[in-house]
């Protein structure tokens, strides 16, 4: 067993750190889109709009039932052959769309469960003051469901950050892609991948801290 090349590792940190904004940016963009889509899907699943409901169920079933890597390949390498409009799509965009669709399916189920967990009295009070279904959802039900769903959703975001590493298979040079290139030049695979692992870990730890603070804020309304 050889000794770790600490100097190489320290030198690599700033190089890979330079790709953190791209990784976080992809994850953030996908998270925002996935949240919006998941809310729509969840509200539909609660409202059970005929015909649309079957499509939504199929969508959720497919994106939960197949690996993210397969979905990304299908989307980036496969779809442009069928739909020439997509031919010019770049890896970053494709990864964001793929992550959005994949994670929205999971998040929709969490949000749906959280919506159904909101007390019936909250629906009735909203209806009684004359709110439309949309107002009732936006103003009363979703904010309360958010408190219940928040821990799970942040977990999905953490998962999503790590999943952005798959964008490297679409030719995107993000944290993982950059590490792979560095390692291929130095042959110090263990050091390089250890550094990137540590950096992902650090990002996730920061997020976990923010998660605890967010939950504290959302619980404010229920604090005695």
């Amino acid at each position: 067993m050889r000794a770790l090349d600490i100097d190489y590792m320290l030198g690599l940190v700033p190089v890979i750190l330079g790709y953190v904004p791209l990784t976080i940016g992809m994850a953030l963009a996908a998270m925002v889109c996935a949240l919006l889509l998941a809310c729509l899907l969840a509200v539909e699943r609660v409202a059970r709009i005929p015909v649309l409901d079957q499509f939504v169920q199929l969508f959720i079933s497919f994106f939960r039932g197949t690996p993210l890597l397969v979905q990304l390949f299908l989307f980036y390498y496969g779809l442009p052959q069928i739909l020439p409009v997509l031919a010019g799509i770049n890896g970053v965009t494709a990864a964001i769309i793929g992550l959005t669709l994949h994670f929205s399916a999971y998040m929709a189920e969490s949000i749906r469960a959280a919506i159904l967990g909101v007390d019936r009295s909250q629906w009735e009070a909203s209806q009684a003051v004359g709110m439309t279904q949309g107002q009732l959802m936006r103003r009363i039900i979703l904010p309360q469901a958010a408190r219940v769903a928040a821990p799970t959703l942040v977990n999905y975001f953490i998962d999503m950050i790590k999943s952005t590493s798959l964008a490297f298979t679409l030719g995107v040079t993000e944290m993982m892609g950059a590490t792979q290139k560095e390692a291929a030049g130095s042959f110090l695979y263990f050091e390089a991948f250890l550094v990137v692992a540590m950096l992902y870990w650090a990002i996730v730890e920061v997020l976990s801290y923010l998660q605890r603070r967010l939950e504290g804020r959302l619980n404010k309304a229920l604090a005695r």
């Binding site: 009070a125 209806q127 009684a128 004359g130």
Partner: peptide, 29 residues
């Protein structure tokens, strides 16, 4: 519903709104 108001046995205040917001909510929305 907009011509009636309703007081519930179990109060049913909006749990995510303050006392003040419970009163303003429907006025604004």
């Amino acid at each position: 519903r907009r011509r009636t108001s309703f007081v519930f046995q179990n109060y049913s205040l909006f749990a995510n709104k303050t006392a003040h917001q419970n009163i303003t909510e429907a006025l604004i929305t």
